[in-house]
Every structure is written in C-alpha cells, then in structure tokens.
C-alpha cells in the first residue's frame, strides 16, 4: 500500500510539473510574449490584455487537458479489460 501511495504521489507530482511546464504561461509582468497568438519573445505592452486571445488560449489548454484525461482513463480501462480477458482464456484452456 505504501508503495502504491508513493508511486501515486510521484506520478502526481511528475505529471503536474510536466503539464504545467508544457503550456506557455502568462507572466505577471507580461513584458515578453510567451502566450499563444503573438510572436514568442516579442516585446509586448506590460498592461495589454487581449480577452479574445486569452479566451482562446484557455480553450486550447483546457481541451488538451480534457483529451489527456480521456485518453488516460480509457487507455487504462481498455488495458485492464484486455489483460483480464487474456488471463481468463488461459485459465479456461487449463
């Protein structure tokens, strides 16, 4: 149980860090463009907030998160089912 808990925590932290770093974040000062919709590295006005750009940025990020969750859950379910089925076949043959 401890092993599983530890594994879960490691996965949790690793995935959090990976997902968090995979997407561009809006820095607080916003002096350099690192968000979608403008040229990366370009200097931008520190105070400008383009709501259209921001909304689409969030939309794409959330869609990516939703598809990852879907893929992980579905993939594990299919794998567990498939393995259970194969195991049962071997037992039946014996």
């Amino acid at each position: 149980m401890d092993k599983r808990l530890a594994l879960a925590i490691i996965v949790l932290v690793a995935v959090s860090a990976t997902v968090n770093n995979s997407f561009a974040q809006i820095p607080e000062d916003k002096h350099v463009c690192i968000i979608d919709g403008c040229n990366l590295g370009e200097s931008v006005d520190a105070k400008v907030l383009d709501r259209h750009q921001y909304s689409w940025n969030v939309f794409y990020k959330m869609m990516t998160a939703a598809f990852i969750v879907g893929a992980v859950v579905q993939g594990v379910l299919v794998f567990v089912t498939f393995r259970f089925r194969e195991k049962r076949q071997k037992e039946v043959k014996k």
Binding site: R4, L5, L7, A8, I9, V11, L12, V13, V15, S16, V19, N20, I26, L49, R51, Y54, V58, K61, M62, A65, I68, V69, V72, V73, V76, F79, V80
Partner: peptide, 30 residues
C-alpha cells in the same frame, strides 16, 4: 490492477488540479 488504478487516479487528479489553478489564475487576471 490497483497500481494501474492509482496511476490513472494520480494522473487525472494532477491534471484536474492544474485545471483548477489555471482557472483561478485566469479569473484573477480578468
């Protein structure tokens, strides 16, 4: 099975936590 389940529970919780943080940050900015 339990290990696999822990992994996918971990992955899903991690992503949903990130979604929550992202939403909170976004609300603050807007």
């Amino acid at each position: 099975h339990a290990t696999l389940e822990w992994i996918y529970v971990g992955v899903v919780i991690a992503i949903l936590t990130w979604v929550g943080v992202e939403a909170w940050t976004g609300e603050k900015i807007l």
